[in-house]
Nucleic acid binder design. Structure first.
Lengths: 212, 212
DNA sequence: CCTGAAATCCCTCTTTCGAGTGAGCCTTGG
DNA sequence: CCAAGGCTCACTCGAAAGAGGGATTTCAGG
């Protein structure tokens, strides 16, 4: 089934246990070789430049430098890089960001283990690997409902519990303008108030909780 | 260093990759034997009753039945059960809940891999295993600032973006009462408004984001 | 028995939100 | 060129939210 050519793989995940698990799973395929590990996006970009693996398995949400940034860096240096995202998170924003950054595959961490190997082989054949579950999630992202950069900025401050007046001061705009943005955000996210907007934004991966 | 007696271990984590990683790590110790796996708290309780492992490695935040409930069930059936929590989350509420439920150890998932083995050995000697990082987090939890059951109930509804009036209707109490509770919650969490209360509650593990 | 914490309710007052409407400016793309 | 969308600001108005008081009941623990 597998070709005679060895497939070199770079693992990027901040959790030691997950890296071990991936090594263990990948070891079972005779033609797979884990050539390196990275614990954050920065390390991943450096490791990729040095090792030029056939496939990179990438977690999103890593300290120092997130997965999406890492994907962008890697693809900028090597547009042919094949990156398989392996994430806990199913927010459409995360998925969309990863795919537009150039990821070729997207797996959820709680997916059964026998999906990783076929996903890697799919990428090696130049084919994308997007599970139906993930595709559905992305499809539910209605076009035109994506927040603009400014709106995401506002949401980031909403998460911190800032009042409109404080947001206005922070951004150097008027409270009325903030109200406008908040109104548009509420409409786009289809929520009733700013509190719900925060939880929906968090669930969809539009913003993340600030690190402790 | 290790005793001649074999140590039986039950793994409970909803992520296949993590279970594989743990197996891989534990395999390195000659006297460790993984006797079972569980993918949620319910399975874990059943598996524990059947297998009676020396140590159970338990994730919090699992579908169907969370880790804390599983710990309670297991300890109820077997007060001598040794449970080592391995969690992503560092909210003081999660930690406190797990420890009061009867967990003997608490590891963060991004802890370096060489902590798991000594933690298990520590539990086998009847000693707790709480990393300084975790202990500090728990210590920062000021006494008297813990939310009451009713208040947590309110916070759960705050997360959903419910207005005070809606919360009142949902709980069968007056809006004034809800306001009182919210006021107390804001004071205890030391936040300015309900929106910030939500993010702080999420960060501290007082409540969790509803499943997608 | 008494204290304290929790939960319930009530009242007032000010600030903030959010809906509804309208409008000017700038950039991007067909 | 013109449309479209993003960002900006303004005004009104009713509904919430939150600060500040106080009050009652219940219940567990010292």
């Amino acid at each position: 089934m597998s070709s005679a050519v060895s497939i070199s793989i770079l693992i990027s995940d901040d959790h030691f246990v997950v890296r071990e698990g991936l090594r263990s799973i990948l070891r079972r395929e005779a033609d797979f070789t884990v050539v390196g590990e990275a614990a954050n996006g920065h390390e991943a970009a450096i490791a990729h430049a040095k090792l030029r693996p056939d496939v990179t398995i990438m977690d999103l949400r890593m300290p120092v430098c997130g997965g999406v940034e890492a994907i962008q860096k890697i693809r900028a240096a090597d547009p042919a890089a094949r990156i398989l995202v392996l994430s806990n998170f199913e927010g459409d924003e995360d998925i969309h960001a990863a795919l537009t950054a150039g990821a070729m595959g997207y797996l959820l961490k709680h997916s059964s283990g026998d999906q990783i190997t076929p996903a890697i082989r799919s990428l090696m054949r130049g084919k994308r690997w997007i599970p139906q579950e993930v595709a559905d999630n992305l499809a539910s992202r209605k076009r035109g409902e994506i927040l603009s950069e400014r709106e995401r900025e506002i949401v980031r401050l909403l998460v911190l519990g800032e009042a409109n007046k404080e947001i206005a001061a922070a951004l150097g705009i008027t409270e009325q303008t903030v109200k406008s943005h908040v109104k548009n955000i509420l409409a786009k996210l289809q929520v009733r108030d700013r509190t719900e907007a925060v939880t929906v934004a968090l669930r969809r991966g539009i913003v993340h909780l600030p690190e402790v």
